[in-house]
Amino acid sequence: MVSVGPTEAIAEEAARWAVLDAYGDMLPEDRKALDVWLAADHRHQGAYVRAQAGLIAMEQVVIAPRALRPSDNDNDGHMSAGNRRGIAWAFSIASALAASLVAVMTVGPWSAAFHRPAQEEGLQVTTLKDGSVATLSDDARLLFATADGIRKVTLLSGSATFKVFKDKAHPFVVRSGDVYAQATGTVYSVERAGQVGGRVRVTEGSVLVWAGDEREQAVLLKAGGSLTLDPGLQRPAVANLKPAPALPPPDLARLSFDNIPIKAAVARFNRINSTQIIIADPAIGELRIVGLFRADDPERFARAVTEVSDTKMEMQKNSIVIKMK
C-alpha cells in the first residue's frame, strides 16, 4: 500500500484540528476544511480520533490530581473485573504509585526476585500477577508466567499452596518436575517429590493431576485428596512408543504449521485427539495452511481451515467433517 503522506504529518495535522475544535473557535470555513481533510483518507479520521482521545487523556492528567485523595491509593495490582469498567483516569493516576510498585514485579525475566515479609515462620505469602495467592515454604522457589492463555507456575523447589484466582478461561497449571496440576479456581498445594515428581494436596475445589504428557490419564483430585506422582521412579515403557520429540501436555501444546498441506495438518491433529477431522473432498486437503494452533482444540483448527479454504464444517459425534459449501 502506498502512503499518500508522511504519517507524522497526519498526526500533527490531526492534533491541530483536535485542539482547534476543542479549544478554539471553529469558523464555518474551518469546519468545512476539517470535513474535507477527514473525507480525504481513513487515516485522517483515525488520526483525528486518536488525537481527540489524546487531548482528553491530557486534560485528565492535568485536571485529575486535584480530585485525588490518599485513600484512593490502596490498589495493589489486582482488580476484579467488576470494578474495572468504573476506573477513571483520576483513580488510575492516584494508584500510579502503587502501579510502579507492582511494575517491579514484571520488569525483567528472572531479574526481579520479589519478596514479601514472611507472614508466618518459614512461610512467605505473595500475590501472583493474576491475583492468585501463593504461600511459599522457606525453601520454595517458583516461577510464574502467563502464555497462550495459561497461567503457568513452575515449582523449582520446596512446596507452595495456591489460592487460585477464579478465572475459568485461563487454566492455572503448576508444574513440579514432570508432574502437572491444573485448576481454574481453587486451593491446593504442590510439593516437590524426588527428582521429577510432585505431591499435590487439594483443600478446596478440584484439581487435575497428571505426569508428563499423559494428560488423558489425568486424575481428578477433590478437596481433601492428595496424590504423589514421581515419574522418575517408574518411567513407563510405553515412553518408547511416543513420537519424538514428545509433546508437552496437550493443554499446553501447540501445533505449528508452516505452509503444509491441510491433509498433513489434519493428520497431526487426528493423531493426538479423539475427535477426528475428516476431509470430505481431497481437493481441500491439498490446500496449504500456515498457523499456530492449540493441539487440543481440533474444532478451532477446523474452523480456521474452513475460513482459509472457503468450505464449511459439520460437527458429528466424534468427528468434524470439512466439506465444500
Binding site: 514485579m105 526481579a112 526476585a113 501463593a134 511459599l136 522457606d138 517458583l142 510464574f144
Partner: peptide
Amino acid sequence: DHLGTKVEYFGKR
C-alpha cells in the same frame, strides 16, 4: 524473555 513470555520469579534467590 526469549520465549516471548513474561516470567516472574518468587522465592529466595
